[in-house]
C-alpha cells in the first residue's frame, strides 16, 4: 500500500532521514519507535508530504506521490493523520470539525456528513459534545475527536504522530483504547509512539529508528524478547 524508496531528508545540513526503504502492506499496524531526534516523526510526515523529502520516492496505492504531477490533496483524503497536539480547529464546533473536510471536498452532503459524524461520536461516547467548541474538552477527548475527524474521511490508512505524548497520564488509556478498536476493525495504521505496551499488543510489525535509519524491524514478540541491534537493546533497557 505504501512504498518508500531510499528516502533522504535533511534540515539545515543535518541529515534526518538517511536513505529509508520500507513497504507497508494493507492491514498492517506498523509501530515506529526510537529515541527523540531519530527521524521517526519526519519519516511519518514524509508519508503524506507534510515534509517534502530531498530525494527518494514515495508510492501510495500504486502511484508515486512526490512528483509535480500528483494531486497530493486527493492522496491525503485517503491518508488520515493524527497529531501530537490534536490540532482541532478551535473556531469550529466538534461536529463542524468532523464534517468540514468531507463537505468541503464534496465527498458527502452536509446531511450525510453530519449523520456519519454523529454515528462516530456515539461510538466513542462523545455525542453530547457535538455542538461545543474544542477548548471545553479534555486532552483525551480532543484526541479521540481528532481521530474521528480523520476517520470521517474514510481513509485507507491513518498516520499517528505521537498521539498520546501531549496527554496527561490518566487520559492516555482512552486514546489507546480507541486506536486498538480501529486496529481490530482492520484499519491500516502507522504509529509513531513511546507506548511500548501498545506497540507490543497492537503492532503487527515494529520499526526501530535511530540516526535517520531503520536499524531493526520485527514482529513484536521477536522484537521485544530478542533484540539484536546494540542500540535497540540499549534503548529497550531504558524504556522498559
Amino acid at each position: 500500500m505504501i512504498e518508500v524508496k531510499n528516502l533522504v531528508k535533511s534540515f539545515d545540513g543535518n541529515v534526518v532521514l538517511d536513505g529509508i526503504t520500507e513497504t507497508i502492506q494493507k492491514g498492517e499496524k506498523v509501530v515506529v519507535i526510537g529515541p527523540s531526534g531519530s527521524g521517526k516523526s519526519t519519516f511519518l510526515r514524509c508519508l503524506n508530504l507534510l515534509e517534502t523529502p530531498d530525494s527518494g520516492e514515495i508510492w501510495f496505492e500504486g502511484e508515486q506521490i512526490n512528483t509535480k504531477k500528483c494531486n497530493i490533496n486527493r492522496i491525503r483524503q485517503k491518508m488520515g493523520m493524527v497529531f501530537q497536539h490534536f490540532n482541532l480547529f478551535p473556531h469550529l464546533t466538534v461536529l463542524q470539525n468532523i464534517t468540514l473536510a468531507p463537505v468541503m471536498l464534496k465527498l458527502q452532503t452536509k446531511e450525510q456528513a453530519e449523520a456519519r459524524a454523529r454515528e462516530l461520536l456515539t461510538r466513542i461516547g462523545l455525542i453530547d459534545k457535538a455542538d461545543i467548541y474544542p477548548n471545553m474538552l479534555s486532552g483525551g477527548q480532543k484526541q479521540r475527536i481528532a481521530i474521528v475527524r480523520s476517520l470521517a474521511m474514510n481513509p485507507d490508512v491513518i498516520l499517528f504522530d505521537e498521539p498520546t505524548s501531549a496527554l496527561d497520564p490518566e487520559m492516555v488509556g482512552e486514546v489507546l483504547e480507541l486506536m486498538k478498536e480501529l486496529a481490530d476493525d482492520g484499519m491500516t495504521m502507522v504509529v509513531v509512539t513511546h507506548e511500548m505496551g501498545f506497540a507490543r499488543e497492537v503492532g503487527t510489525r515494529i520499526l526501530f529508528m535511530d540516526g535517520g535509519k531503520v536499524l531493526e524491524q520485527a514482529a513484536p514478540e521477536e522484537f521485544f524478547t530478542n533484540p539484536k541491534n546494540e542500540r535497540l537493546k540499549d534503548f529497550l533497557s531504558k524504556v522498559l
Binding site: 503524506n48 491525503r76 488520515g80 490540532n87 481528532a146 480523520s150
Partner: peptide, 21 residues
C-alpha cells in the same frame, strides 16, 4: 502551523485551508 497541517492532512487545498481554517 498545526492548524494548517491538520487542514492539509485532511486533503483540503492550500486555499481552502487558508480560507476556512
Amino acid at each position: 502551523i498545526g492548524q494548517t497541517e491538520a487542514g492539509r492532512s485532511l486533503g483540503l487545498s492550500r486555499a481552502q485551508t487558508m480560507w476556512r481554517i
